[in-house]
Amino acid sequence: MKVLHLDRESPVHRLSPEVKIASVLLFTIVVVLTPREEFAAFGGFAVLIAIVAVLARVPALWLLRRATIELPFVLLAVALPIFGQGERVDWLGLSLSVDGLHGAWNIFAKGTLGVLASLLLAATTPMRDLITGLDRLRCPAVITEIMMFMLRYIDVLIDDARRMRIARISRGYDPRFLWQAKAFAIGVGSLFLRSYERGERVYLAMLSRGYTGRMPNSGGVRAPAREWLVSAVLPVAAAGIALALA
């Protein structure tokens, strides 16, 4: 399974997962609450993200490539000025909605900053540590356990799908077109049933070994106060920028 984590030696990588999760969450809240007309504030937020990326030794090109996941939302944002209502302005022969322009900027700026912050979190924290951090932050146990099982068995599901595809191709059938979607849907259904049956067997095996509804404590040392103070720099600095430029 392809992961986003970058194995580097940096001050950001060494922080405990729970403090990084809390920092990114609070930073995102500050970004979302900032009025869309405060253009300078968003520039300040971008500078903060760039500083964290440099400290974490995460290449800018790596971030930009993976940030393309937000392209569907960017395309939606592009359409807002064209189809928006209210006051309009002319630009390069196009009649654009002022409110739509503000809405497009709002989606692009806040979405991009949120995606970049999330990518930095993923790049500096292994997936297992993220789940441990969520557990330490008192995230509902059912959510963290589902995520843990998903992490453990996603490779198994991918391998099952690969074997089913090879079996289908070896029999001379490889659906690629819309009118062949039935075969693909049947394959997805079969994969779901096999996964469900495997999940039932795993659950029964866990019960027979004393599972009580909660995974054993992962242990580890909780984050010291110093790390909480360090991680607070990002959201506090973002809040300071928002208030100073408001």
Results as ranks from 00 to 15, higher is better:
I241H: 03
M147A: 12
G199D: 13
D159F: 13
L229R: 13
Y153R: 13
L55A: 11
A181N: 12
R198H: 12
F42N: 03
T144H: 02
M150F: 14
A238K: 07
A79E: 12
A223S: 10
V19Y: 03
P216Q: 05
V32A: 09
V3W: 08
D174V: 02
D7W: 03
A161E: 02
R66N: 10
V89Y: 04
T212V: 09
R163E: 09
G210Y: 00
I82W: 14
L92Y: 10
F39M: 11
K20C: 01
R162C: 04
D129C: 03
G86P: 00
L101T: 02
I143P: 03
T144C: 04
F39D: 12
L151H: 09
M164L: 11
R226Q: 15
I107G: 03
G189E: 09
F39A: 14
F108M: 11
I143H: 06
E18S: 05
I131W: 00
P140E: 08
L137E: 06
F192P: 04
F177D: 14
W228L: 07
L4N: 11
L134D: 07
G240R: 12
I146H: 03
L113W: 03
A109T: 08
A181P: 02
T132G: 08
V30M: 01
D90C: 03
E197M: 08
G43F: 11
L15R: 03
L116D: 00
G86Q: 02
L96M: 07
A46L: 13
K20P: 01
A246S: 14
L25R: 06
S23P: 04
A239Y: 05
N106M: 12
Y196C: 02
A232G: 08
L229T: 13
